[in-house]
Computed example of a mutant assay.
Amino acid sequence: MSSTPAWLTVTLREVETKIRDRAFIISTLITVLLIVGAIVLTSFLANRTSNYSVAAADQLSQQVLQQAQQRQGEDVELSIAQPNASDAQSQLAEGELDAILSSDGADGFIVQGREEIPSALSSLLSSSAQEVMTAQLLQSSGLDPALLPDADLLRVELLEGDAERNSMIQAMAFIFSFLFYMAALLFGMPIANSVIEEKQNRVVEILASAIKLRELLAGKILGNIILAVGQLLIFLGVGLAAAWLSPVEIPFLGVVSQVATWFVVFFLAGFLVLAGFWAALGALAARTEDLQQSSGPVVTLLVGILFVGLYAKGTVLVIASYIPIVSSVAMPIRLLTGNVPWWEPALSLLVVVAFSWAVLIFAEKIYRRAVMHTGGALTLRKALKLED
């Protein structure tokens, strides 16, 4: 007889069956490619500079273009072309010029383009023209334009963090929430389906004669946990590696990497709770159709967690970070702010681990009593009245 524990045999069977599934492999690879592609595309767009070649039709327009060159940012680069009037029109028609700027003789300007004028170029020329005309008006009145207030008078200060960090938190909140939601469905639902399939085919009766039902359930849960956490680590690892290797510097990447570790730990604790729920639902059901009806509360809970991760702020987020399962998303999001003392995630993790232990004990009790019942779907109350 094999010396391998029965629960480990079941665990290895669950993992081996899944990793041999072509659909699972393809979906994982596609997701990895999408993650890498999204980061590469973001880096490319962030590092991309739009180059515009503009000609001036008169001296005043030339001053505006020179002012625009001084105001151009990292995303816009302006070059001033020097063709004569006839050549400028032909170059514009052939696409060698992006625009021609000319004064309309009434304190205004006209920008000619071939098919369209990019908004970034139009905005730059408009603000530059306003500055040039304002300076001329002041000079004609005997005032020094240098005495004008600086254009950037408004400075933004936030009580909690800064705009850049808040943007990072919003992006990571979406990623954490979505990963938890998808993993809970993709790896939680198969636990219930597997239980129902073995129950319908009476395979569980054969297995029960060889191993304990407790070990069978443990193997199913552990197998899917390994798969879920393994896939999560792949996604996070690939995403972080691509971000570190990106030519564009991504702010707060070190903070994200640290919090990602916490997220994996909280994900594991939260998934244990959901795995217990799915196993109990599978044991109570007699057919797949029964599961579709009884799984509503769990799916609603997952949607609620998703919305908490996306929209919860302030006190609501603090409270949510101590509620089991919800804390799997809420606490990592709070940790991104960098203002959470170490004991808070430790306490939150202790709460969700204790809760998951209680749920698994209860789910195992329901599983043992209901999985051998073949007379139709059971309610929770009826299952508790059954004998082991």
Rank of each mutant, 00 (worst) to 15 (best):
S3L: 12
S3Y: 03
S3M: 14
P5I: 10
L8S: 02
V10M: 02
E14W: 12
L33F: 12
A38G: 03
F44K: 04
V54I: 14
S61E: 11
Q69D: 07
G73F: 04
L92M: 08
A99V: 13
G108E: 14
F109D: 06
Q112T: 13
E115N: 13
S123W: 09
L124W: 12
L125Q: 07
M133E: 15
M133G: 00
A151P: 11
A151H: 07
R155C: 00
M168L: 12
M182F: 15
A184C: 06
L186E: 14
E197C: 00
K199A: 02
V203C: 11
L213Y: 01
E215P: 01
L216M: 14
K220Q: 09
G223I: 03
N224G: 00
I226R: 01
A228Q: 01
G239S: 12
A241S: 13
W244S: 00
S246Q: 05
F252Q: 10
G254N: 13
G254C: 02
V255F: 00
Q258A: 00
F263K: 02
A279D: 15
A280N: 09
L284I: 13
T288D: 14
L291W: 12
G296P: 01
L301N: 07
G304S: 13
G309V: 06
K313T: 14
T315R: 06
V316T: 09
I325P: 00
V326W: 06
L335C: 04
P345G: 02
L349A: 01
L349V: 04
A354G: 11
F355V: 04
W357M: 00
I361F: 14
A363Y: 10
A363D: 06
K365L: 07
Y367H: 04
V371F: 10
G376P: 13
L378C: 12
K385F: 00
K385Q: 05
D388W: 11
